[in-house]
């Protein structure tokens, strides 16, 4: 082998070594999966949060739970027939004032999770924008890009259609319409 050839082989070995190192770095960087357990956690809490919230008895009036107030608000919002709590506030006002406590002290408090919560009637003016009864959001949406959504459809009663109670947990929730 000539001297020049030997030098080229040396160069090749160095280039190969650098390539291997770079390849290793890139594969490790690209193959780092999103934190699946966190997504699983968000999915789980979104679902259980909605069920627990609906089942909670309120201080609005005896034997009135959150589900009753949501249904009343959906049917009678702004109407004189809207249910009035013992304190004098209407069902919609009561929800507006209290829903935040439910989310802020749980989902948001656990690791500063950003969230979007909505109660809508998707069919009231279909196919235009759905009627939004309650809408709350909070947290730092720059944290992460995922959004785990749980939507619970709810029948309001004969002739009154249905509702959608939706909660999205994760930084990506402000970027897409969760309902």
């Amino acid at each position: 082998m000539k001297k020049a050839q030997i030098e080229i082989v040396g160069m090749l070995i160095i280039v190969l070594l650098i390539s291997f190192v770079l390849l290793f770095v890139f594969t490790q960087t690209l193959s780092s999966e999103p934190e699946s357990y966190e997504q699983e956690f968000h999915q789980g809490i979104a679902r259980t949060w909605v069920f627990a919230m609906l089942d909670t008895d309120t201080t609005c009036a005896p034997n009135k739970n959150m589900q009753d107030l949501i249904i009343d608000c959906a049917i009678w919002k702004g109407d004189p027939n809207e249910f009035e709590c013992d304190s004098g506030v209407t069902s919609c006002e009561y929800l507006e004032n209290n829903i935040e406590t439910f989310v802020e002290s749980t989902i948001h408090a656990w690791g500063d999770n950003p969230y979007v919560f909505k109660i809508t009637d998707p069919y009231v003016s279909f196919p235009s924008e759905p009627d939004v009864f309650i809408e709350k959001e909070g947290g730092d949406f720059s944290r992460g890009s995922s959004c785990e959504v749980f939507i619970q459809p709810m029948s309001v009663g004969r002739g009154h259609g249905s509702l959608r109670i939706a909660i999205g947990v994760g930084g990506g929730c402000n970027e897409y319409d969760i309902v």
Binding site: W49, F51, A52, M53, D55, T56, F102, T106, I107
Partner: peptide
């Protein structure tokens, strides 16, 4: 964490 309802059978009320 797990969001939950806590039922008080004495008061017959459910708390969040």
């Amino acid at each position: 964490f797990m969001p939950a309802v806590f039922f008080d059978p004495v008061e017959d009320e459910s708390y969040f």
